[in-house]
Design a protein around this nucleic acid. Sequence first.
DNA 1: TAGCCGTCGATTGTCGACAGTTGACAGAAA
DNA 2: TTTCTGTCAACTGTCGACAATCGACGGCTA
Lengths: 231, 231
Amino acid sequence: MTQSPALQLHHIENKPLRERVLDILRDAIVSGDMRPGQPLVEMELAQQMGISRAPLREALQILSQEGLVETIPYKGTQVRSMNRMDIEELYSLRSVLETFAVQRIIARRSADDTARLRAIFEAMLAAAQQGDLSQVNEIDRQFHDGLIELSQHHLLLTTWRSVSLRIRQVMALTNRRNRDLTVIAYNHLPMVEAIAAHDEAEATRLLREHVESAAGLIVEGWTQPGESDPK
Amino acid sequence: MTQSPALQLHHIENKPLRERVLDILRDAIVSGDMRPGQPLVEMELAQQMGISRAPLREALQILSQEGLVETIPYKGTQVRSMNRMDIEELYSLRSVLETFAVQRIIARRSADDTARLRAIFEAMLAAAQQGDLSQVNEIDRQFHDGLIELSQHHLLLTTWRSVSLRIRQVMALTNRRNRDLTVIAYNHLPMVEAIAAHDEAEATRLLREHVESAAGLIVEGWTQPGESDPK
DNA sequence: TAGCCGTCGATTGTCGACAGTTGACAGAAA
DNA sequence: TTTCTGTCAACTGTCGACAATCGACGGCTA
């Protein structure tokens, strides 16, 4: 028998524990629930999740590679703390990567691309008009992730993931004052239009400006959280 | 007692097994001793090195994050194979990262930086004149690593490491015809001079050209090794 | 009192054994 | 034959126990 017809059972996925643990911990870190400097004791976490240390350690390895935690052999692991320079580096590299993505998008001149970006912008605007901050943030993330994806550069995507995770962490740790959400949303429009117009110079200029202003807002009021500044 | 005077004992280092294993495997891969597609069976490797599977697995995790091997849950790990597109992505991202580094170096306008680059160039030229291919390659690596280091951007350095490892692998897997070594060496001189002259436009143009020609040489005669091309 | 050194608890590193998953193969059913 | 199903071997995933390391504490000696 091939298959009884209409009944569609959905895929039950069986990830290794390591990956489920990874998702949980990563989420806790980038959401700010686990704060910089917080020690991650293997036994403790494993017990808490009801698993053994092996898969937990493997998850920590990966987080370490992603730059979210810091492990010192024979000493332990803690959530990585960031100082001003880390944040500047983060945002400057982000700017470089996104610029590269935009250049590739423009070079391809695909109408689908601009349509998708426009759609994301519309969604962001709608959320902004309803004053839904977290939704705006979520869509903003989609917008920038979208730029990278549309560039169709797999290695860039991989590299981006690691940078963007830490940016999310930084944003979660920053208590932003509520600026006007619709202004934030409209900030994205010129960039979409520049891409649609295949105007590389303008698009990259706008992007750089966009990222730099974002960085500025963050760096400005730092020093509170993970004090790893002085020496 | 503080210390008896002149006797200098050098540091005996005690890395976890995981890291020593990592170094060995990484080296075998980027040197081309382990070829793309080659399966890495945990039990086999562990036995061969006389250790247990735990630290070996942790090393494989990291290699996987570095993009040197590919792991599929419950199936296994193998040396990652690369097709033409992978190589194009590798070199295009490399170009972006190095360009960024050069811009930062120029912005800092440090005489020490240019002195160091000049010194590396001199060494490369000397090796080239003696026809020492592997030495030229080694110094070429130092040159490009040097650009990244001099940019004083820690996150960039981290990102670079992963890209440069895979580039080394690609180069090791390519049977280059022996071009004139002194020509290769002299190719680096204009870039050093452009940096010394703080001429950003020229420096980035030269760099892009440099990387693109390198990529061209590789991509041209590919298809031999890790055939993961078709579908 | 000041400096050295053994001891100890907490935590990470490593190991060997067992459980679960996969793909291939052989044999039963149609 | 062809299709399905049980079985098996080769792995990877997970576990609990043991070994090694580190920092701190406290006693010993000068």
